[in-house]
């Protein structure tokens, strides 16, 4: 029988960690792009666009991420397209991330004083120009801390992709546990690796937030 030493377990987990990181990065960046588009729609003051984003956000914030993964996994298959766990996980995590980022960023946009909107519109800037040159440069300053904080949620969210069969850190942990029957060791290591990924980000987010409070 094949024997797994401590180092075998750890190195296998670290290989799988790469996929957790890749999936997190893709979900975060694609989610950020979709979120930015939604942010423009949400603050556009055009009723149908606002309604669409409201329903979108309500759905993705009001249902479990696990359900969204299942829906993408089985839903796309209905169109006769072969769905890999990789594709379903990327899509579900992207949309889920975008919904939360839109809400976070909307809060930051609304924190900008109304006078900024009025001043820029009296200078004959269009809505897009107002956002691009006046509002977003100011809003992005206060948006950094909560956005970094949310990236921790994205990393933790990727753990659920293991359930639809995407092999990342959690799935690798389950597989190693099945092979070695050492659940305490394996899951401790899995938790420790997640902690090493997430804690620096949490700490960083807290630090930026503190710096902003001093400035005020």
């Amino acid at each position: 029988m094949l024997q797994f030493s401590f180092w075998d377990i750890l190195s296998n987990l670290l290989i799988a960690t790469q996929w957790t990181i890749v999936l997190s990065l893709i979900a975060f960046f694609c989610g950020g792009i979709v979120g930015l588009v939604l942010l423009f729609m949400r603050t556009s003051r055009i009723a149908p666009l606002e309604w669409f984003t409201k329903i979108y956000i309500e759905f993705f914030q009001g249902t479990p991420l696990l359900m969204q993964l299942f829906l993408f996994f089985f839903g796309i298959a209905l169109f006769g397209v072969e769905v890999s766990p990789w594709m379903a996980a990327t899509l579900a995590l992207t949309f889920w991330t975008s919904a939360f980022l839109t809400e976070i960023w909307r809060g930051c946009v609304e924190a900008i004083p109304k006078g900024q909107w009025e001043a820029s519109s009296s200078l004959a800037l269009s809505y897009i120009e107002q956002m691009r040159y006046v509002i977003l440069p100011q809003a992005s300053r206060i948006a950094v801390a909560p956005t970094v904080g949310f990236s921790v949620q994205v990393i933790k969210g990727t753990a659920l992709a293991s359930i639809i069969g995407f092999v990342e850190l959690t799935k690798a942990g389950t597989m190693l546990n099945n092979a070695t029957f050492r659940p305490f060791l394996v899951y401790s290591l899995v938790a420790l690796i997640y902690f090493c990924l997430c804690f620096p980000l949490s700490w960083w987010a807290k630090k930026i937030e503190g710096r902003l409070n001093v400035a005020r």
Partner: peptide, 23 residues
């Protein structure tokens, strides 16, 4: 607080359900 907030819920669940029986 930091341990729980920086690890996924599913890993905590697996640790409690599969890991603790080993102890």
């Amino acid at each position: 607080v930091e341990l729980i907030r920086n690890t996924p819920f599913i890993v905590q669940l697996f640790f409690i359900f599969f890991g603790l029986p080993a102890l």
